[in-house]
């Protein structure tokens, strides 16, 4: 029904939930030792409204003992320092290139375009019947240098 499309929601609900998801992912992912010290860096490639939502979370929460730092990143050097790198949909074309440059460095690539979990990202945001969900690819996550708890696999849509 169209009724399903006409829910009363505000403009930023998706970004809010994507940010909330991201915070929750940290509970199930183990980064390499060098990424468990200093700040927990969430990079946003290019500009995206998700950045504001993430900053709200960063003010309130930590990942373990690590302070959360949210920043817009543009260079490969900056990217390799990130724990998470979010690539918004309009920058998806760059995802493959970014991946090949930071593989195994403990940077989890989160994309936002259908199909990208297959070969590129560890986690990919998707919408199924208008509902926000995520795909998760264990192999890609391992390639990116992190370990993933199987609970997270069961919460998302596993992709091989």
């Amino acid at each position: 029904m169209l009724a399903a499309f006409y829910g009363t929601v505000s403009f930023s609900q998706d970004e809010k939930f994507k940010a909330l998801f991201m915070y929750n992912f940290t509970k199930y992912i183990e980064w390499p030792a060098e990424k468990q010290t200093g700040a927990f860096i969430i990079g946003v490639y290019g500009s995206s409204p998700i950045q504001n939502e993430l900053m709200l979370i960063a003010e309130k929460k930590k990942v373990g003992a690590q302070q959360i730092q949210v920043k817009q990143v543009n260079t490969l050097e900056e990217i390799s320092k990130c724990n998470f790198l979010y690539i918004p949909e309009n920058k998806s074309a760059k995802a493959q290139e970014i991946l090949s440059n930071c593989s195994g460095k403990g940077t989890v690539i989160i994309t936002d375009k259908p199909g990208l979990a297959k070969n590129v990202s560890g986690i990919n945001y998707i919408q199924i019947n208008g509902k926000q969900s995520f795909e998760i690819n264990r192999k890609n996550l391992e390639k990116q240098g992190v370990k993933v708890n199987s609970v997270l696999m069961s919460l998302g849509i596993p992709v091989e």
Binding site: A4, V9, S10, F11, Q13, D14, F17, G130, K131
Partner: peptide, 24 residues
């Protein structure tokens, strides 16, 4: 409140919220 919830609940809430107006 949202940050204190388990991930399972956040996922359920995301389902309830559904699509946003921009996507609409």
């Amino acid at each position: 409140q949202l940050l204190e919830m388990p991930f399972e609940d956040v996922l359920k809430l995301a389902e309830i919220v559904g699509v946003s107006l921009d996507e609409l």
